[in-house]
Amino acid sequence: MPDHVSIVPFAVLTGAVVLGAVAMMLSRNVVHAAFWLLEVMMAVAGLFMLLSAGFLALVQVMVYAGAVSVLMLFTVMLTLRRREDAERPLDLSAASFGLAFAFGLAAATAIGSLPGARVRMPAHAPGVAEFGALLFSRWALPLEIASVVLLIALVGAVWWTGGEDR
């Protein structure tokens, strides 16, 4: 595996991620914002693909783009009583820009203070078979714990919303 990825696809994909995120924040229509979020998720999948993490990219597409954002869109479209309700107020005052700037500064300082994580790339990109073998041997217990936590969350959500017979 080379130590660098080629610059052109990287620039296109990171540009898509950053611009998509900005467009999501700036669009007044919540449905448009949800579609921009979807674009960001797809571009992140592209970045995974660029790093030879094919399995991760496909899971990103399937879970985040195919399920999470579809559910988000579904909920937004189902709960809007009128079409005009999709327009949200956008605060462009100096105070909000100041707050955003302060947050950006804090995040940049926090990331800058971390020790430089210079990871050496492996000799070859592990395939999906190696990934699966490792996931179900060395990381089997954490995987099971995570799945049980998710299952509990699922059952809890159903119980929470369950009608009169609860």
Partner: peptide, 12 residues
């Protein structure tokens, strides 16, 4: 997995 991932994008 690729076929299924592509299929999951259809509803969008």
């Amino acid at each position: 997995l690729f076929v299924l991932a592509a299929g999951s994008l259809v509803p969008i």
